[in-house]
C-alpha cells in the first residue's frame, strides 16, 4: 500500500492535466482593467476617463436586477508591422480577461504601428471592437462600424476621438440597454478638461494623507497600520484586493475593424 500511494498520486495528478492547451502569450490586464494602455499611447486624462466611466457603468449595471454588469475595456498594442496585428486574437484576449458579467462586455483595441520602445513614433493603424455573446443583440457590427466612423475615424484628435467613442458606447449602454431617456456629453467641455488636466489631481488627497502618516508625530498607530495594508495591497502581496477583474464574460468573435 505504501508503494501504491505515490503511483496513485501521480496517476490522479496526470489525469487532471488532460486536454491542457499551450500557454497563452496574451498579457494579463493591467490593474486599471478598463484601460490597458500597453502601447503607452493614451494621454493620462483619457486613461482616467475610461477607468472612471468603466467603473461607474459596471457598478450601476451590476446593481440593477435586470441587467448584468456591463464592462467596456480599452487596450492598446504597439506592433512593428501591420502583419503583426494578425497575431492578436481579440476573442482570446476577451475570453482571458473575462469581460462583462453574463457576456455583456465590449473590448476596444487600438493597434499602433512603429517602434514599441519609442511611443512618440507610434501611429494609429487599426481599431477593432469585439463584443460578448449577449452584447451582440445591442451592438451589431453595422452599429459598431457607424460608431467607429463617427468617432475615432472622424475626429482629428485621437484623444477626443477616443473619448467620443467611449461616450457613444456609453450612450448605447445607458439609453438602449439601461433605459435612460438620453446620455449627454459635451466634447468641447471634454477638450477643456484635456487641456487643463492635472495628472496628480486625483491623488492630491491621498499623497497628502500618506505624507501626514509618515512624517507627522501626531499620526496614530491605526493610521500607520492602514498605510502598511494599503502598501501591501498596491505593491504585491495583497494585489488582488484592489485589482479590478472581469465579470466572467465570453465572446464569440463578432466584431468590427477600421483601418486608418
Amino acid at each position: 500500500m505504501k508503494r501504491l500511494g505515490p503511483i496513485l498520486a501521480v496517476f490522479l495528478l496526470t489525469a487532471g492535466l488532460w486536454g491542457c492547451r499551450p500557454a497563452s502569450n496574451i498579457p494579463d490586464p493591467t490593474r486599471e482593467f478598463y484601460c490597458n494602455d500597453f502601447a503607452d499611447a493614451f494621454p493620462a486624462a483619457v486613461r482616467a476617463t475610461i477607468v472612471a466611466e468603466g467603473k461607474r457603468l459596471y457598478e450601476e449595471t451590476s446593481e440593477d436586477e435586470t441587467i448584468s454588469g456591463i464592462q467596456i475595456v480599452f487596450a492598446t498594442f504597439a506592433v512593428e508591422t501591420a502583419e503583426d496585428i494578425a497575431s492578436y486574437n481579440l476573442s482570446d484576449i476577451y475570453n482571458q480577461w473575462e469581460i462583462g458579467t453574463d457576456d455583456m462586455g465590449i473590448l476596444v483595441v487600438y493597434f499602433y504601428l512603429g517602434d514599441p520602445d519609442k511611443p512618440e513614433t507610434l501611429e494609429l493603424e487599426e481599431v477593432r471592437i469585439e463584443v460578448g455573446f449577449a452584447m451582440e443583440t445591442y451592438l451589431p457590427p453595422w452599429d459598431m462600424g457607424d460608431i467607429l466612423d463617427e468617432t475615432i475615424m472622424a475626429d482629428e484628435s485621437e484623444a477626443i476621438g477616443t473619448a467620443h467613442l467611449l461616450y457613444e458606447l456609453l450612450t448605447v449602454m445607458y439609453v438602449d440597454i439601461f433605459g435612460y431617456e438620453a446620455f449627454n456629453y459635451d466634447l468641447d467641455v471634454y477638450q477643456e478638461y484635456l487641456d487643463n488636466y492635472d495628472p496628480y489631481s486625483d491623488y492630491e488627497g491621498l499623497w497628502g494623507w500618506i505624507l501626514y502618516v509618515v512624517m507627522s508625530p501626531y499620526s496614530g498607530w491605526w493610521e500607520k497600520g492602514l498605510l502598511v495594508l494599503l502598501g501591501l495591497s498596491v505593491f504585491g502581496i495583497g494585489g488582488g484586493l484592489v485589482k479590478t477583474v472581469g465579470g466572467g464574460g465570453r465572446s464569440g468573435g463578432l466584431g468590427i475593424r477600421r483601418r486608418r
Binding site: P141, G145, G253, L254, G255
Partner: peptide, 24 residues
C-alpha cells in the same frame, strides 16, 4: 452598402472563431 460590409466582416469573423473553438 457600409452596413453590408460591416455585417459580412463581423459574421465571417465570428464564424471563423466558432470553427476555431469547435476544432479546439
Amino acid at each position: 452598402y457600409e452596413d453590408f460590409n460591416d455585417a459580412v466582416w463581423g459574421i465571417e469573423s465570428a464564424l471563423s472563431e466558432a470553427r476555431r473553438q469547435y476544432n479546439y
